[in-house]
Amino acid sequence: MNKIVKFYHEMGSPPSFYRITGYWLKPFFVLALALTVYGLIDGLFFAPPDYQQGDSYRIMFVHVPAAWMSLFIYAIIGVCGLIAFVWRMKVAEAVMMASAPIGALFTALTLLTGMLWGKPMWGTYWDWDARMTSELILLFLYIGVMGIYSAYDDDPRKAARLAALVAIIGLINLPIIRYSVEWWTSIHQGASISLMGGNSGIKDWSMLRPLLVMALATKFYYLYSMLHRARNYLLRTEQNKSWVMRQLTEQ
């Protein structure tokens, strides 16, 4: 059997997923911590001030990676929701439900740091602008996914399927957030990075570097936190299985 296919099947089994991901936790955490320290020092003390926004633009080094994570994690939740809904794969349910609180955290962080950036730049903490409103809706979607799951907590499989349905429907919000600044008149600035090489976005490497490092750091932290939570989810939902007791006595 192809190695990738074999790995995919192995990761689909809760005991194997639990065992394999146990080896990844420490490296992911160390990478997240090291990259965060490097990215923040580089962004706060070595990147030059912006010619228009002065030092206030440094909020970008936490705001933009958090915003990217809020969208990225919801996309993961949507894909896992689809897998959980169609194939009823338990590990997909675990990843989906483990991702929801981290996604909500990054969305809240995006909104709060955005408010702190908005006040000195726009003169207000909040405006019912398309980008801000759609990001707030994303936070409600995360809360909705977690709320639906908790409402049916006594039957985790049913709860996960219903949460998956909410997650799949909510996917429609992702392109709205992404293109809101282009579709509607907005006080929010455009994309920080242009993948197509357009004129918008940051061009200076000394500003771009800490931003990309922080984006990587938040990805690694997400992987660390999500795997921890997914492992906890599997322990809780499979606590009557023999592998759970074996794992707990081995530690």
Partner: peptide, 21 residues
């Protein structure tokens, strides 16, 4: 500069929220 509260407030929020998680 005059953005001390906003910049350091954002960094503190980032640190505190990830630490709580």
């Amino acid at each position: 500069g005059k953005y001390n509260f906003f910049v350091w407030g954002s960094m503190a929020l980032f640190g505190v929220m990830l630490a709580v998680d």
